[in-house]
Design a binder for these strands. Structure first.
Length: 495
RNA sequence: GUCCCCAUCGUCUAGCGGUUAGGACAUCGCCCUUUCAAGGCGGUAACACGGGUUCGAGUCCCGUUGGGGGCACCA
């Protein structure tokens, strides 16, 4: 890539940043980074009725969370600004007037009704060409000017050159795509209300901003020949296109609200790690080598390439995302885990003082992290795992089913009594996992019961649940006195 | 309707004329184990269909079927 790569992500602030948009942003960003290029963020808000400032902020926030830093765009500025289309209106007008003056575009006075009638007629006579019938294309220039000056409403249409042959697009992912010349339409570039249409504004901007590669969704592929017409009329070089396939829901249908979470912020709030999320999304339609699945963002930023983008539409698989998130969590050091996930979760649950300096025993915290980390798939799991540990003998919530299955049975009281005695021999300063385990270890034989039954009973007594992290570790963290008190309390539930 | 795109395990994909069709998620089994995780080992599972081209086709060509997208004074 010898030229200076300039790419852009240009979302419309008509909604939140969704998964598909996020992936497009990631690809653009990664491509720029891998080629020492410039990544531009532009807000395509030419549709004032659906665009909102609030959505723009949501998108910027999502981009920051994803860690996709832009070199030019809102808040950082740049030489090619401004970076919101509503602030570039004069540029579009200027460009349209130039095309008008050069005879590369013309005013169209057709009313919506006339156009609709033409469309219907074309459909009825099964005309292979269903586009604009070019009624106004040959109105003499002076007549057109007179009607415009008289205040007659008009749109501006691009004039597809008579001799323009087929439009051949060389797409970086699809290869050569040909659109027949007869399909080309004199489409509207300026509305009668004086605003530019998307296909025009985008090209004017991309040309003005020197965009070299347009990486965007497949849904724009059919628009591309139209846009090529604009580039040519403008006399601007046509960029390289890379059309990436859509992301589908688990049912193979286009991703929508009914597939559950579709916006980036929902994933952020659900407790996914930005790194894992970006890694997962980058692999939806791209591969490094077909083998590697864990791809840290710095590798993505150095190894991303257009030629390894897949043509297939991809189905979003939440299960794999979950796995990847757990993978990233597990790869964290204990300290990282404590700082980024454990502490914040505990503080949020009110289990810990907001001031991290208060009441945190480093060694204790490290042991907690060691048992919580491998059990955490999502940040949201932490509170549930920690709850029994942070409870007290009186506040601990006993799970009904667990009590019924593991505690409220004949002979269980005997187990608790034996456990209390065994643990009672352990001095407070020797209350550690290995010694707790050792103290409990002879019980099954002594009581002539299965290991499982014995430990189940103690587990439910101490943790309130049949499921918990390893007993010894857990009991060490809970502390001697509280464990004894819990067993005491549980004794009343056992028979 | 018309134009364009797409087609390998359930899912994401590797493959770029000769492979026991590879990896990952999911799933199943085993090991570890006092429960749950984590980890280790192993299994099930795919070239949509039909024609060509070729000594040889998952790979190239055509068609069919099936999905998706565009065809607006929406982006």
């Amino acid at each position: 890539m010898s030229q200076n790569v300039r790419v852009r992500f240009a979302p419309s602030p008509t909604g939140k940043l969704h998964i598909g948009g996020a992936r497009t942003a990631i690809y653009n960003w990664a491509f720029a980074r891998a080629n020492g290029g410039t990544f531009i963020l532009r807000i395509d808000d030419t549709d004032p009725t659906r665009s909102t400032e609030e959505n723009t902020q949501i998108i910027l926030r999502a981009m920051r969370w994803l860690g996709l830093d832009w070199d030019e765009g809102p808040e950082v500025g740049g030489a090619a600004g401004p970076y919101a289309q509503t602030e570039r209106l004069p540029l579009y007008r200027e460009a349209a007037e130039r095309l008008l003056a050069e005879g590369k575009a013309y005013p169209c006075f057709c009313t919506p009704e006339e156009l609709e009638a033409d469309r219907r007629a074309a459909k009825e006579r099964k005309d292979p060409f269903q586009g604009y019938q070019r009624r106004c294309r040959n109105i003499p220039a002076d007549e057109a000017r007179a009607r415009m000056e008289a205040g007659e409403p008009y749109t501006i249409r691009i004039k597809v050159p008579e001799d323009r042959g087929d439009v051949v697009i060389n797409d970086a992912v699809h290869g050569t795509v040909t659109f027949a010349a007869k399909e080309l339409d004199d489409f509207v570039i300026f509305r009668s209300d004086g605003t530019p249409t998307y296909n025009f504004a985008t090209v004017v901007d991309d040309a003005a901003m020197g965009i070299t590669h347009v990486i965007r969704g497949d849904d724009h592929l059919s628009n591309t020949p139209r846009q090529v017409m604009v580039y040519e009329a403008l006399g601007a070089p046509v960029p390289v296109f890379a059309h990436i396939s859509m992301i589908l829901g688990t049912d193979g249908k286009k991703l929508s609200k009914r597939h559950g979470a579709t916006s980036v912020e929902e994933y952020r709030d659900a407790g996914y790690l930005s790194d894992a999320f970006v890694n997962y999304l980058s692999l939806l339609g791209w591969s490094l080598d077909g083998e590697t699945t864990i791809i840290p963002r710095d590798v993505l930023a150095s190894r991303f390439s257009l030629d390894r983008i897949s043509k297939n539409p991809a189905t979003f698989d939440p299960k794999k995302l979950d796995w990847m998130n757990a993978e990233y969590i597990n790869a964290m050091t204990n300290d990282e885990f404590i700082e980024k996930l454990l502490l914040p979760a505990l503080v949020q649950q009110g289990l810990m003082d907001a001031d991290p300096a208060v009441g945190v025993d480093g060694a204790w915290m490290d042991k907690l992290a060691a048992i919580v980390k491998p059990r955490t798939k999502l940040a949201g799991d932490i509170a549930g795992i920690c709850a029994p540990i942070f409870a007290t003998a009186s506040s601990l919530v006993y799970d009904e089913k667990s009590v019924a299955k593991g505690l409220a049975k004949d002979g269980m009281g005997t187990i608790l009594d034996a456990a209390r005695v065994a643990l009672g021999t352990l001095p407070a300063d020797e209350w550690e996992a290995a010694k707790i385990d050792a103290a409990l270890e002879p019980l099954p034989d002594a009581l002539e019961l299965k290991k499982r039954v014995v430990f189940q009973a103690v587990r439910v007594a101490v943790c309130g649940n049949l499921v918990s992290p390893p007993l010894g570790e857990t009991m060490e963290l809970i502390g001697r006195d509280d464990c004894m008190a819990r067993i005491e309390r549980a004794r009343t539930m056992a028979l």
